[in-house]
């Protein structure tokens, strides 16, 4: 079992009012699963992603990751978990604009303290795996949208994370390019990666083995599609 949420609750205070991001959510995800998370805006998708990605902490309940209770980690530990176990893919790519593709991909390994030659080797391999060997020294503004997202995927996988979190990865792309990106995700899954994909498009969600639908911070349905 890679992920386990037990009565996971996240409450935000907004002007003295309690807003539930997550409300008593119970959820387990196995290693190697490919899960889509769907739901209207405000349903708790982002909160769940932030919690699972160690960007945020639960207000109450437990988060067990790979057998360890990670509900109340220090900020330092959270950063360490993000660095070593999570690969983020964002809707807006979030590449650093002044850096070349390879420098962007190298970043997680810098924060891991890897040596330069190790970093460059891994970064080259990761870029090659998304078909960007020829564009390693281009900056984001010299790349197309699809290429940018492929750089971001390379950055997400360069450190061999336990979990890949993709937040609307095709949201800023046209349909054809979006398909390409989804195919890369599919192949990552085939290679054994655990992937959680947040999307609001049914046909993309259907690439996953399992679709979880959220509403008002609760799991509305959780179905296996494959």
């Amino acid at each position: 079992m890679l992920i386990q949420l037990e009565r996971a609750t996240r409450i935000y205070l907004l002007g003295g009012e309690k807003i539930y991001g997550l409300r008593d959510v119970n959820l387990s995800i196995e290693k190697g699963e490919y899960v889509s998370v769907m739901g209207p805006s405000g349903s708790g998708k982002s909160t769940m992603l932030n919690i699972l990605g160690f960007l945020d902490r639960l207000t109450s309940g437990r988060y067990i990751f790979d057998g360890e209770d990670v509900s109340s980690l220090s900020e330092e530990k959270l950063a360490r978990y993000r660095n070593r176990t999570i690969g983020f893919i964002f809707q807006t790519f979030n590449l650093l604009p002044r850096m070349t593709a390879i420098s962007n991909v190298e970043l997680p390994l810098i924060y891991r303290g890897e040596r330069r030659d190790v970093r460059l080797k891994s970064a080259r391999e990761a870029l090659a795996s998304v078909g960007l060997s020829e564009r390693m020294y281009h900056r984001p503004n010299e790349l197309s949208g699809g290429e940018r997202q492929r750089v971001a995927i390379a950055r997400a996988v360069v450190g061999s994370p336990s979990l890949i979190l993709a937040d609307e990865p095709t949201g800023n792309l046209d349909q054809a390019t979006g398909e390409e990106i989804i195919q890369i995700l599919d192949s990552l899954h085939t290679a054994g990666n655990t992937i959680i994909l947040v999307t609001h498009e049914e046909f993309i969600a259907e690439h996953a083995d399992r679709i979880i639908r959220l509403r008002d911070g609760r799991i509305e349905s959780d179905e296996r599609v494959r």
Partner: peptide, 16 residues
């Protein structure tokens, strides 16, 4: 700010 957010998401600690 955004760059800082990205770096933190990728594992940068406060002192980094």
């Amino acid at each position: 700010t955004r760059e800082i957010g990205v770096r933190k998401a990728l594992g940068a600690r406060r002192h980094d």
